[in-house]
Design a protein around this nucleic acid. Structure first.
Length: 490
RNA sequence: GGCCCGUUAGCUCAACUGGUAGAGCAGCGGACUCUUAAUCCGCAGGUUGAAGGUUCAAGUCCUUCACGGGUCACCA
């Protein structure tokens, strides 16, 4: 890559540092405080208190601003959480060191040692007596005022985004807190966290196209998992009554502001419960997350306010269709008509079943209207091959989707426990595969055998963590909540 | 994959119906010991995403391509 003049300047400054005997890549540095410790611990102190206490600190960070004024210089050092001002004066550090500092640039990482004080303008700062070079930044950083705006660059070079747009790091701190609180929630309820395979010989547990790979030693095709579901239920068969897993799923489908090919899924299963229990648990979980992270039972999402006060609305799938689709209720009785309508919405599809057609109409006309958290219950059995049928209506499944912010956040059901019925459902799916539906479920005989050993009544659920973070962090694109979203290599 | 939009200095953005590619920040040189988007003086920085084409003349119009964003489709 061609070097620009500023890069050449920075390189020659680094050479000069070396000539001055400065260690360019030091091994270790002393540190008494983080920048955050200083800002949070001493901001409330008055000028006089600081002078009296003479707090000595050794702190490291990246130089993000420099204001040189002859024999004195102010600069800020920062990490992803906080920034603090440093005051450097020639009479304090000596002529030689002061001159050395002219070889430092915005972006360099240094350690400074000094006493805390307050400037005339009232900013908590470090009056430094010495500083240590830690790392050179060989490229100029984006502009201090606007930061890095180019979304493509922000995603491709997330480290740059984090350096110059510190508010972006808040999204990821929130994400981390959310996952940590999820673990706390389930652990307290006696769940155990488990890990199941991410490489499957038979990809299952969802309706989606998988990524395919090959294992050399075994000489077999393997697939990156599209869901952990079937393995987690095997663990229920094995006697673990409450399990959860938080990890990546991989789906070889389109990319959009709501879809990344790899995404983080929370799945949890509880023996001796059903989908109604899962609804209560879900409300409890997300309400808890909101209260413990945001301190509120409400989140702002775009133009909307989402209330997380319990209980949340429960609405039958078909009722939601009638209420939001704008299609006359009587038309839903006409199966052929519904299929025809759905086909016009998805020109790529050649044929559809009634249940699939309803699902398409739901996604198209209903989902985006559901901003407040809503459990859409009793989805068509046809599109739910792993769920128990409803007692009252054999065409419906004991299944719900949680929709909020116009997005599907969770999907849960009373797990199908009857091995013979599971086998029939798989066979139906196999028929659909034959007809060209690449996302239809495979037949997993080992899973059926696991069911034959006896799966107790079980409720299970998956929650899309990335989308939940989107809502909590008020971001409209999934790429804003994933450090390194998938982009085409340049 | 279809359609729409975008791509100009390291970054953020200008450049009217085609007529000499500019500014701010960052950088370099100089002044400056409480500044904070520091200030003041000066300087440098460009294959306008790529390749073709139209034209006396293209950042601007046309074609193709690349990457991204939005949207539709696919897909929980």
């Amino acid at each position: 890559m061609k070097k620009i003049d500023q890069e050449i300047v920075r390189e020659s400054k680094m050479e000069e540092l070396a000539q001055e005997g400065i260690e360019l890549f030091p091994h270790k540095v002393k540190k008494t405080h983080s920048i955050f410790d200083i800002v949070s611990g001493f901001s409330s102190f008055s000028k006089e208190e600081l002078e009296e206490k003479k707090v000595k600190v050794i702190v490291s960070g990246r130089i993000v601003t420099i204001r040189r004024m002859g024999r004195a210089t102010f600069f800020h050092i920062a990490d992803s959480q906080a920034r603090v001002q440093v005051y450097l004066r020639e009479d304090k550090v000596g002529k030689k060191n002061y001159k050395l500092f002219s070889l430092f640039d915005i972006g360099d990482i240094i350690s400074v040692e000094g006493f805390l004080f307050e400037t005339k303008t009232g900013e908590l700062s470090i009056f430094t007596d010495s500083f240590t070079f830690l790392a050179k930044c060989l490229h100029p950083l984006p502009e201090k005022w606007h930061g890095l705006q180019d979304v493509e660059l922000r995603y491709r070079k997330r480290y740059l985004d984090l350096i110059v747009n510190p508010e972006e790091s808040e999204v990821f701190r929130l994400r981390s807190a959310l996952i940590s609180k999820i673990r706390q929630f389930f652990d307290q309820k006696g769940y155990i966290e488990v890990e199941t395979p991410m490489m499957h010989a038979i990809p299952g547990g969802a309706l989606a196209r998988p990524f395919k790979t090959f294992h050399n030693a075994l000489g077999i095709d393997l697939y990156l998992r599209i869901a952990p579901e079937l393995y987690l239920k095997r663990l229920i068969v094995g006697g673990f009554e409450k399990v959860y897993e938080i990890n990546r799923n991989f789906r070889n489908e389109g990319i959009s502001s709501e879809h990344n090919p790899e995404f983080t899924m929370l799945e949890f299963y509880q023996a001796y419960s059903d989908y109604n229990d899962m609804m209560v648990l879900t409300e409890e979980l997300i309400n808890f997350l909101s209260l413990s992270i945001l301190g509120l039972e409400e989140v702002v999402f775009g133009e909307e306010k989402i209330s997380l006060k319990r209980p949340w609305k429960r609405m039958k799938f078909k009722e939601a269709l009638v209420l939001y689709s704008g299609i006359a209720p009587s038309r839903f009785e006409d199966e052929a008509g519904v299929i025809e309508l759905a086909l016009t919405l998805t020109p790529d599809k050649k044929s559809l079943t009634y249940g699939k057609a309803l699902d398409i109409i739901f996604d198209k006309y209903v989902k985006h209207n559901l901003i407040q958290p809503t459990f859409i219950i009793n989805l068509p059995k046809e599109v739910s091959p792993l769920a128990k049928a409803s007692k009252d209506n054999p065409d419906e499944a004991e299944r719900f989707e949680l929709v909020m912010g116009g997005m599907e956040i969770a999907n849960a059901f009373s797990e199908l426990t009857n091995p013979a019925e599971q086998r029939e459902r798989f066979e139906q799916q196999a028929e659909e595969r034959k007809k060209g539906s690449e996302e239809a479920h495979w037949i997993d005989m080992d899973y059926i055998q696991a069911l034959e050993y006896g799966l107790p009544p079980t409720g299970g659920e998956g929650i899309g963590i990335d989308r939940l973070v989107m809502i909590f962090a008020n971001r409209k694109s999934i790429r804003e909540v994933i450090f390194f979203p998938l982009l085409r290599p340049k």
